[in-house]
Write a protein that binds this DNA or RNA. Structure first.
Length: 476
RNA sequence: GACCCCUUCGUCUAGGGGUUAGGACUCCAGAUUUUCAUUCUGGCAACAGGGGUUCGAAUCCCCUAGGGGUCGCCA
């Protein structure tokens, strides 16, 4: 795809940004960057009842943190603004009036109760629930009278009958839906706000969107959108219906099964690198069968042609592995910096930067998230309590020999390099005649609080000489 | 219920007429490591079923089944 695309990510501000939205935004972004096109953020806040305060900020922040930068949007503006739908009401009204004038839409005065009743009756008869068309042929006089009487109304799109809507989806190829199945969609609600269907089509056209990437759940309503394009005499965009992200039980990813917000994974200590990399792989696969990618590499590799049709279960096990991989392979300074807020929150004073870096370098071999880093680091900062088993090992006669020998030796020198400590360990083996776990376990237990863990020179180096000596003395 | 979409190891997936059906995660085993973690090597594990078409089908066609989505003045 060499033609520059204009794509939009158009979330509703109804809560925290979740992983499904992130994937859509990511694919939008990758496509835009790859073709030197534009990635636009548009806020679809036409449902005033579902607005959640702070969602717009969370959306913008999440994208920013992950490095998915947009070219146009509410924060940065652009030539096609405003980018928040509640600020574009006049535009929608103009377009709805145009449809009304052309006789392609009509006023509907049916109350919610009436509609619900009608729907229920149809469902009871096992019929396809659909609007009755009751208000389809109201005369202008009747309409005026009802409006004058102060009745609430909506505007509906008059869907043509006996037509087959056929369209080409970039992922699913040809899709056909019979128009008799498509309802006379409400395009303007009684509160004066447009519905998604109208607003999205108008905006996508006015903002010159070339590719509409959205979840598969929109497939059945695409005929409505195509028909709207037709009514306005516009050319529809290329449709790209992405496979759904699924819960472990194969249902659409939802809050009921857990917190799938981007914020949640960030809070859990997942790196943005792995979140992006992992989410990219849910429905897309590189031609080279490679799986580890930076965002920049994804831009180069990504293509819609290689997006799958089938939904993908979000399974955290692989994310965990991938995050661990990034923890171990990214620059240790970067990991340390990203981990710092977690340490601060856990009240661990890591102001000794040198020590902190050493600790992180060691701990990241054991941890698969930033937050787990704390579990493997706090022992260098805080005292610990021993298990009965470990305490027994330390109390053994040979253990005591080892500990006191090291205690004396370490005090004899003001500074020790890791190499020197290594030599010291060898000397201990030779002079004490104690080796293997009988040597290492008591040392590690006294210094680190566990018989398993990093090697002795590393422990002493991370702890600092004085602290190491102090800990040894504690068990003598 | 109607319509639409989908179906390769447990999971993410490659392959799209001739492959020992490949990779990754998980799990198991071995090696390395004083230990643990890492790393490396190896192993277990899949074409939903049935019919066609074809010399040959995981791949193309049809049917069935299963799963999902949609059917709102939500998006």
């Amino acid at each position: 795809m060499t033609q520059a695309v204009r794509v939009r990510f158009a979330p509703s501000p109804t809560g925290l940004m979740h992983l499904g939205s992130l994937r859509t935004a990511l694919y939008d972004y990758l496509l835009a960057r790859k073709t030197n096109g534009q990635f636009i953020l548009r806020i679809e806040d036409t449902d005033q009842n579902r607005l959640v305060e702070g969602s717009i900020e969370n959306l913008i922040d999440s994208l920013k943190i992950l490095g998915i930068n947009c070219d146009e949007g509410p924060e940065i503006g652009g030539n096609y603004g405003p980018y928040i739908q509640s600020q574009r009401l006049e535009i929608y009204h103009q377009h709805i009036n145009e449809l009304l004038d052309k006789g392609l839409a009509y006023h509907c005065f049916c109350t919610k109760e009436e509609l619900d009743q009608h729907r229920q009756a149809q469902m009871n008869l096992k019929q396809n629930p659909k609007y009755s068309g009751k208000c389809r042929s109201l005369t202008p006089d009747e309409i005026k009278a009802k409006i004058d009487a102060g009745l609430d109304y909506v505007i509906r799109l008059k869907m043509p009958e006996d037509r087959t809507f056929s369209f080409n989806d970039a992922i699913r190829n040809k899709v056909e839906i019979d128009s008799s199945l498509v309802d006379d969609q409400v395009i303007l609600k009684s509160d004066g706000f447009p519905t998604y269907h109208l607003a999205a089509v108008v905006d996508d056209h006015l903002m010159q969107i070339t590719h509409v990437l959205r979840g598969e759940e929109w497939l059945p309503s695409t005929p409505k959108h195509i028909y709207l394009y037709e009514c306005f005499g516009w050319t529809p965009p290329i449709w790209v219906h992405l496979p759904l992200l699924l819960n472990t039980d194969r249902s659409k990813l939802s809050k009921r099964h857990g917190d799938f917000s981007v914020q949640n994974y960030l809070n859990l200590g997942y790196l943005k690198e792995s979140i992006i990399n992992f989410v990219a792989l849910l429905g897309w696969h590189s031609a080279e069968d490679r799986e580890l990618f930076t965002l920049e590499e994804l831009v180069n590799e990504f293509s819609i042609e290689r997006v799958n049709k089938a939904g993908a279960i979000f399974d955290i096990t692989k994310l965990e592995w991938m995050n661990g991989w990034y923890m171990r392979n990214l620059d240790v300074k970067y990991i340390a910096q990203e981990a710092k807020p977690f340490f601060t929150k856990a009240n661990i004073d890591v102001s000794d930067h040198n020590k902190y870096l050493k600790v992180i370098a060691t701990a990241r071999e054991y941890a698969s998230t930033l937050i787990q880093l704390i579990d493997f680091s706090k022992v260098y900062y805080q005292d610990f309590t021993l298990s009965d088993e470990d305490l027994a090992i330390v109390k053994e006669e040979n253990s005591q020999k080892v500990l006191s020998w090291f205690h004396i030796k370490l005090k004899a020198q003001a500074e020790w390099t890791k190499d020197e400590i290594n030599a010291l360990v060898k000397e201990a083996i030779a002079t004490l005649g104690i080796k293997g776990k009988h040597l290492y376990f008591p040392l590690r237990i006294a210094l680190y609080g566990s018989s398993h863990g990093p090697e002795i020179p590393t422990l002493i180096d991370n702890l600092g000489l004085n602290e190491a000596i102090r800990r040894l003395s504690l068990f003598l």
